[in-house]
Simulated assay, not measured.
Amino acid sequence: MAAQRLSMRKLRELFRLRFEAKLTTRSIAASLGIGNGTVCDYLGRARVAKLTWPLPAELDDDAALTALLFPEDAKAQAERPEPDWARVHAELKKKGVTKLLLWQEYLEAVPGGYQYSRFCERYGRWLATSSVTLRQEHRAGEKCFVDFSGDGVRVVDAVTGEVRVAKLFVAVLGASNLTYVEPVFSEDVATWVGCHVRAFEYFGGVSEVVVPDNLKAGVTRAHRYEPDLNPTYADLARHYGFAILPARPRRC
């Protein structure tokens, strides 16, 4: 068996080439850029699983096909200790801590544990069912959340070698989570307004409400109930016909 498992897309193509196109093992290997032994291994698994072609509708789901072809995964998962997701969630709130870093620590403690993609998937499932999150429902086209995010990214000038830190303007549609990200070197009003315009162009429209954080480019005075808006930002809202609903300032 190959050290790295084929993607499900490539695996389905392997079966198509064999059972529909009737190609030889060698031809399939050449077409997919894999070894003959890998092709034979997957075809052997297909025989054991008694797969038919075309695949039945219930095997359109990748997880179902994986479970059928790799029954050893279920046994390994049953024997594999689950990460402490509450601890993972708490650690992710710390500056500089990423899921990749926590996954690497997990593998050191549990050799043969979940692969990174599976680790992230299971954390996401835990998060969705955990009481630590409050799920918000957003109507399509209703809200767009905007802010300058994080500590920024290092940008190196390929000619001079100069290193600059770019902030990331992020706009996210509440209902679909469609996201627009733009690196910028300033957080002034002109940049803030320009980023909005380009985000709207990217989205192909404007939401009814835009929810900015309380940064100076958008909100000149943060107040829990009556924040003051930057005049230029207010003009932008009137021009595009959206309402500005600043996020409430955090309590200390």
Rank of each mutant, 00 (worst) to 15 (best):
R224T: 13
G150E: 14
V110P: 07
D73S: 09
S27C: 11
A2L: 10
L11N: 04
M8Q: 07
L127N: 01
A158V: 08
K75R: 15
V146S: 03
V153H: 06
G113L: 04
S7A: 08
L101R: 15
S176C: 02
M1N: 06
A190V: 13
W126T: 00
S31D: 10
F15R: 02
A128V: 11
E105S: 11
D213M: 06
M1G: 15
F169L: 02
H223V: 04
M1S: 13
Y225T: 12
D62G: 06
R80N: 05
L229G: 01
F145D: 00
V170Y: 04
T24M: 09
A3N: 14
D151G: 07
G204I: 02
G161F: 05
E108P: 06
V155K: 12
V219H: 04
E226K: 15
L100A: 15
E201N: 00
P81W: 00
A140N: 12
R45V: 02
Y240T: 00
K22N: 08
V181L: 10
A171Y: 05
V156P: 05
Y202S: 06
T52N: 11
E79G: 07
L178C: 14
Q77F: 12
P54R: 02
R18A: 13
Y123R: 06
W192C: 01
R221A: 10
D235L: 14
A76S: 12
P111M: 03
P246Y: 02
C144H: 03
P231L: 12
D73M: 09
V206Y: 00
T129D: 11
S149N: 14
R9T: 14
C195P: 02
D60G: 10
R125Y: 13
S130D: 02
R224F: 12
S186W: 03
A217T: 06
L55G: 01
P246L: 06
A234L: 13
N177C: 12
K99E: 08
G204K: 01
D61E: 03
T232H: 15
Y114D: 00
F200T: 03
G37K: 07
L100N: 12
T232C: 15
R250W: 10
R251K: 15
T52Y: 09
G205A: 05
E72Q: 06
A67P: 05
G218N: 00
R80H: 02
P111E: 03
C40M: 15
E13D: 08
E137N: 09
G218L: 01
K216E: 09
T232K: 14
Y225A: 14
A57I: 15
D157F: 07
L11M: 05
A67N: 04
S149C: 15
G37L: 12
V48F: 07
L23C: 10
A2K: 11
E58H: 12
R224P: 08
S131L: 10
A243L: 10
A247V: 10
V181R: 00
Q136N: 10
R139Q: 15
